[in-house]
Design a protein around this nucleic acid. Structure first.
Lengths: 362, 362
DNA sequence: GTGAAAGCGCTAACAG
DNA sequence: CTGTTAGCGCTTTCAC
């Protein structure tokens, strides 16, 4: 895929500067040993003349290490992952690393394949972002592959569930959803529906479980058929909302297990003129979605920061056993869940405005 | 950053299979020459036993070519770019390539730096997505770097403006904005404002120019102080809208040069209770933004497809001079520009509903 | 078919 | 400090 003939080599540079290969190497690509300034300048000039660019691949094999890190996500187009990617890339830049990114399209097998590819590339580190599934077999295979990666000298970190003996940023989906349920019942809601995402996706499963748990603690029941599964996407939320309505359940409030589904749900409600009748809450607090109307109540996850932390963690030397770091979200109540009028007064801090600092963009 | 000691080498595999290095290589990593099935099986078994993964870097230096392509974007968190990335990654996957991505943070210098890094990596191809600026110097340096990249055997393609003698997907910003202006005046609007984006950003400049041109053709004036520049972001649009209002100009319709700015503008209008008074149009048709209210009139750009096309173009063998392929957008009229009631009846096809096929997600 | 050996472009001892 | 000389891990002639 692309011949690399034309490329100038270090030998060309050395010859032109009239020095040895070794000296040229030391002058250009740094080294412990020092080079006389005069010579160094001559070499650098030669390199400039020839427009020399070191062959990173060759350096990698000679040095036995790479300057590339890998990032495996489920879908780069999903803002959840592009934010994480942004964070990781920021840290990579700060450390002079290039990031090779792979979008697995939510197929566990592809994910494993990419980890393997990254192992072949001898990536220094690799961060795997995205929910695990309940597919024990896929999990085991991923574990094997990650293990092989680490044994070959690389370092890996997962973002999501703690399911493998590997460094992990454990997203507190369960407690986040539980807190959300608590706040929502605090607003006076008593009947809920859940747009639950794909059945086997742990992030979705955990959020559902946590939400149910929160309701239970508040003494609110969640009937089985008030839970509708669907794709983890805008259209999935749209369809699930319609399905829930079709089931004839009247709910005051719907919890969509992520923001994009919530947006789909609101769209569905709107076409039926119900957007102010049924409250909707999401999860993630996706920046790009902050301007939907009504503003979404959600659980904010510091996505960019998660990406940064993940890469930093894995770059930091570490000795011994896997580290698990918990990432907790924060409930943000907004207009999409105005609360039930008569009863229960809204708790303190219930109405939080949209953040509009100059920092948040997109 | 990460020792690569543990890694199993092909030599280990060869030894275990009791064959020569050469044979092991042929058996595992393919070759013109054939290997007796029996031997091949033995080698493959050995590789499996040892959990061997070929060192892609070493292969690259030996073969003189890589399996990585580079993608340089302005900001991976911006849906405009994450969609392009998704497209590029799709075709990369189809061709067994890994993509190294770099997010330049809208700094032309960083962009150049990354192209250089990609050259060092000996990337087979590289796609540079994002608007050029009016900085002639930066453009020249990018040109030099890209040229060096191509001379060293790689292939490059730009997405944006035709400003360099390099393969380019030329986005028809100007004509898109012109068409938009035509349609908008067709709806009866007569006074416009423009939230124009950063001054030096060619994409923004072209869209402004095209829009102005469209208005002119329709005999509508666009006063200089009805044009407000600002960041190419949601907050930039928000601020610019406020500024436009502060200037005391009463406009019927505002054109924000991209969707994220348009969303910011709508948010600003909403806080003032003006969202149904001032019409707003954007550009790009960002998927994630399709559910804002009112639904955004915009110029749809096939972003994912652009990413695909770019990489395909550059992967396809080509002899000779640079190719320029035009990408034209399509005006999509939606609720954010309902049209002016009394006069001018809406033209045919004016009201296009939101696409809601199961395909569109996020 | 298979193996020995010469690279690929660069780094890193090791001597001077 | 600088040059010589082994490698790094793999591919690919070139003989057998």
């Amino acid at each position: 895929m692309g011949a690399k003939r034309g490329a100038v080599t270090l030998e060309d540079v050395a010859r032109r500067a009239g020095v040895s290969l070794a000296t040229a190497s030391r002058a250009i690509n740094g080294s412990a040993r020092k080079v006389r300034p005069e010579i160094r300048e001559r070499v650098e000039q030669a390199a400039r003349d020839l427009d020399y660019a070191a062959n990173a691949q060759a350096q990698a094999v000679a040095r036995g290490r790479t300057d590339v890190v890998g990032l495996v996500v489920q879908d780069i187009e999903d803002p959840y992952f592009s934010s994480i990617a942004a964070g990781a890339m920021r840290v990579a830049e700060a450390n002079g690393l290039m990031v090779c990114i792979a979008s697995a399209g939510r197929r566990p097998d592809k994910e494993i394949e990419y980890v393997a590819a990254l192992r072949r590339m001898r990536a220094a580190a690799i961060v795997i972002a995205g929910s695990r599934t309940d597919d024990r077999d896929a999990l085991a295979r991923l574990g094997t592959e990650v293990d092989a990666f680490e044994r070959s000298g690389g370092r890996a970190v997962l973002i999501g569930q703690r399911r493998l003996p590997v460094d992990t940023l454990v997203v507190a989906n369960r407690s986040g959803a539980r807190d959300l349920a608590t706040r929502l019942t605090g607003l006076g809601y008593r009947s809920f529906g859940v747009l639950a995402g794909p059945r086997g996706l742990l992030t979705a499963v955990d959020r559902l479980a946590g939400f149910a748990e929160g309701l239970r603690k508040a003494g609110v029941a969640l009937s089985r058929d008030a839970v509708v599964h669907g794709e983890f996407t805008r259209d999935g939320g749209h369809a699930a909302m319609l399905e829930l309505l079709a089931r004839g359940r009247s709910v005051e409030c719907v919890f969509a297990v992520n923001d994009v589904m919530a947006v789909g749900a609101i769209a569905a409600l709107r076409t039926l003129g119900l957007e102010r009748t049924v409250a909707v809450a999401g999860f993630d607090d996706i920046t790009t979605l902050r301007d939907v109307i009504p503003a979404l109540t959600t659980v904010r996850l510091p996505l960019v920061e998660i990406g940064e932390t993940a890469l930093e963690m894995v770059l930091r030397e570490h000795s011994g056993r896997p580290r698990y770091q918990r990432i907790v979200g924060e409930v943000v109540l907004r207009e999409s869940t105005p609360g039930v009028r008569p009863a229960h007064p809204a708790p303190v801090g219930a109405a939080e405005p949209l953040p509009t600092g100059p920092a948040s963009s997109t």
